[in-house]
Design a protein around this nucleic acid. Sequence first.
DNA 1: TAGAATGAGTTATATTATATCATCTGCTCC
DNA 2: GGAGCAGATGATATAATATAACTCATTCTA
Lengths: 167, 167
Amino acid sequence: MKTPAEPLFTPPPTTHNHQQCVHNALKTAETLCVERGVQLTSIRHQVLELIWESHKAVKAYELLDRIKPLQNAAKPATIYRALDFLITQGLIHRVESLNAFVGCRCSGRQHEQLLLICKQCEEVEERTASQVMQALAEEFQRAGFTAHSKAVEVHGLCQRCAGLSSE
Amino acid sequence: MKTPAEPLFTPPPTTHNHQQCVHNALKTAETLCVERGVQLTSIRHQVLELIWESHKAVKAYELLDRIKPLQNAAKPATIYRALDFLITQGLIHRVESLNAFVGCRCSGRQHEQLLLICKQCEEVEERTASQVMQALAEEFQRAGFTAHSKAVEVHGLCQRCAGLSSE
DNA sequence: TAGAATGAGTTATATTATATCATCTGCTCC
DNA sequence: GGAGCAGATGATATAATATAACTCATTCTA
């Protein structure tokens, strides 16, 4: 049931050790869920693992297709429920502008980050961007607005892709 | 064909003169389209007008329902094409986190604004927030990211609604 | 007048997401 | 042990959002 999933994706061409990266993310998730007394069930774990296969944002129905070999009975609701759980626990981000989901690197803590989405390699980089958040807070102050949740998403070219295309 | 549309909505309880506000928006749109040599056709004008009926973000299928009395043949594509046009011309914003659309107050110019979305009255306030944009630009610099388009959307309570609920 | 460009009509379908009710599983309390 | 509860999942259906692809009409202009 907890098959490590076939490498259905092209690993990111970055130099980072992705296997380690995924391993950390899953371990952190497991620990956090224990601490919080919530259940990282088999399905939820599998969905999280599938999301972490790459640093690209993944669509819900893509996850559904990929999880079917492991969970024959999987239906849209299966995926959406798992996604809800993972979002609530701060383990993944929903990328609003793509209707897609990406693993959260700062698992479970601060969950409102700047997302930099590369149009070319499609990878999503998450940044804390405290100065941006600070400027936002000041703007809310001026506007008399009480913020509950933020989505700060930027599309463009990541450093690597911009470098390649300008050569 | 250019019926001013029945008041299907509750006008915003703000003190502003909404009729004037809509009038300005439409006039500006008309002028801009002439300047740019693009056609603000009857359908496009109607959709823009419907969007401006309130300061809430409107769903595409809501627009479809509302435009049907005026454009009997209207289909989803009718609306989505008009929306595409209006977005391209910078006359409306797409609110990514709601899959909805709202009139743009800074028509046609700077089109990347901070959107403050009230969970209670549902109105969307648009702010230029140059300090936020500046902080974003600096963050892109640090990340080596080339930004093409931004969505900065915040959900919460507007001043008015926060005031009311805290009384 | 042919042909390109643009907008709109029409039909079909793809994609994304939720509602609802039934069932199962593990736990607690008696 | 069994009743009852809560949380998770199964199963079915359908809602909501969005696009594709082809046609036709209009306008402009070469």
